[in-house]
């Protein structure tokens, strides 16, 4: 059985009088230990999907089961406790506490759990060494570069040994060189600990680090493929630039059968998940 099951998820925002459908009817299933990338342009609903999967937002309809538990039905306190135990977060803008040292920042999730200071500092130091910041334990975020800050963020996400780590555009604020470093690190960490990593990005290059790529367009999954095939095809498909997103439906045989019962999707053309025209993908 898969670790995360997203069932008929729908999210509609109401902005003034207008109803904006952020997520149509999304079905998704992610296995334990998988590194899954949710790829989409801004406005595709990828962040909404991530937020709902992490229990930060309630869906309009549908369910998210994590380890069999329906997190959309949980109360605020239950969710907080659930996140303490099961979920790690890596943010685009790092979101470190400016007044805390690296060690204190990394130890924070453990502090919320009620771990004693001595123990959590020990764990945090171990994590910082693992991300190569052994010499910057006492530094504050302002004394570190973006890449270093994000490494602290990574250490913080993994320190409590969560089942799932969500990474929301983790390299969005980093230059291309650091991006490589940071991505390597995140993916390695996840694989070393056998943790499930859910990577949300608009960047196709980043997506290459994942086992599996789920493409989201206008709140619907249009393709869901193992990574190898995407790499192979992307290079071929690059010059074509023909397909319209809506018609580029998911590749069903590429996914675990139960994962995407894409009833709402238009009839899939499984072998042709052409890349989307994606202006955000390679900024400047």
């Amino acid at each position: 059985m898969s670790l995360i099951e997203v069932k008929d998820l729908r999210k509609v925002y109401r902005i003034d009088q207008e109803r904006v459908v952020a997520l149509g009817r999304v079905n998704l299933s992610i296995d334990e230990g998988e590194v899954c990338c949710i790829l989409g342009t801004s406005g595709s609903g990828k962040s909404t999907l991530l937020n709902i999967m992490a229990g930060l937002e309630k869906p309009t309809r549908g369910k998210v089961l994590i380890g069999g538990e329906d997190i959309t039905a949980m109360g605020e306190r239950q969710l907080a406790l659930f996140r303490q135990k099961n979920i790690g977060f890596i943010f685009q803008s790092y979101n470190l506490m400016p007044t805390l040292t690296a060690v204190e920042n990394v130890a924070m999730p453990l502090m919320f759990r009620g771990v004693s200071r001595a123990r959590r500092d020990k764990e945090a130091k171990k994590m910082l060494k693992a991300v190569g910041l052994g010499k910057r334990m006492k530094h504050r975020p302002t004394q570190m570069s973006g890449g270093q800050q994000q490494r602290v963020g990574i250490a913080r996400a993994f320190v409590a040994k969560p089942k799932i780590v969500f990474a929301d555009e983790p390299t969005g604020n980093l230059d291309s060189h650091t991006t490589l470093e940071v991505m390597e690190m995140i993916v390695h960490m996840a694989r070393d600990h056998g943790e499930t990593l859910i990577l949300v990005t608009h960047d196709k290059e980043i997506a290459q680090y994942a086992d599996r790529i789920v493409r989201l367009v206008d709140g619907a999954i249009i393709s869901d493929t193992p990574n190898q095939s995407i790499i192979g095809r992307e290079e071929q498909a690059q010059p074509e630039e023909a397909a319209t997103p809506a018609k580029d439906a998911p590749a069903e045989e590429a996914v675990p059968a139960e994962a995407v019962p894409s009833s709402e999707m238009p009839s899939p053309q499984a072998d042709d998940p052409a890349p989307l025209p994606d202006p955000d993908a390679f900024p400047s």
């Binding site: 992490a54 930060l56 907080a80 659930f82 303490q84 135990k85 979920i87 977060f89 506490m97």
Partner: peptide, 16 residues
């Protein structure tokens, strides 16, 4: 605000 938000996301209980 931001700190509080991050704390919440990282699983800090509202009562805390």
């Amino acid at each position: 605000t931001r700190e509080i938000g991050v704390m919440k996301v990282l699983g800090c209980l509202v009562s805390n």
